[in-house]
Amino acid sequence: MARMVITANRLRDGAVVWRSAAGNWSPNITTAAIHATGEQLTAGLAAALADEKSGRVIGVHEVEIETRGGQILPTRLRERVRADGPTVSFA
């Protein structure tokens, strides 16, 4: 299985957050738990969806990643933009 991390947006302010092994949601992808097996991912998603149900986060989903030089990099551009912010300088 491709390696996966779990992400969502925080309910109160909409910020992008990533789920750590301890079950915390952090804006920093570097702290995200990496799931290498289907069982790990299923368990992680179940816990994340419980957080969604309780209203901490919304839009829970898994994201395929690769690691390069210790960095976690989502493979899809959409998720890289979510992790790093807009690719353009604004305002």
């Binding site: 947006n9 302010d13 909409g14 910020a15 992008v16 919304i58 839009g59 959409r78 933009v81 979510r82 912010g85 807009p86």
Partner: peptide, 14 residues
């Protein structure tokens, strides 16, 4: 309810 009042959730924020 939020959409009909113009509030979206986008990639990084509302």
């Amino acid at each position: 309810l939020r959409l009909r009042n113009g509030l979206y959730l986008q990639l990084h924020s509302y």
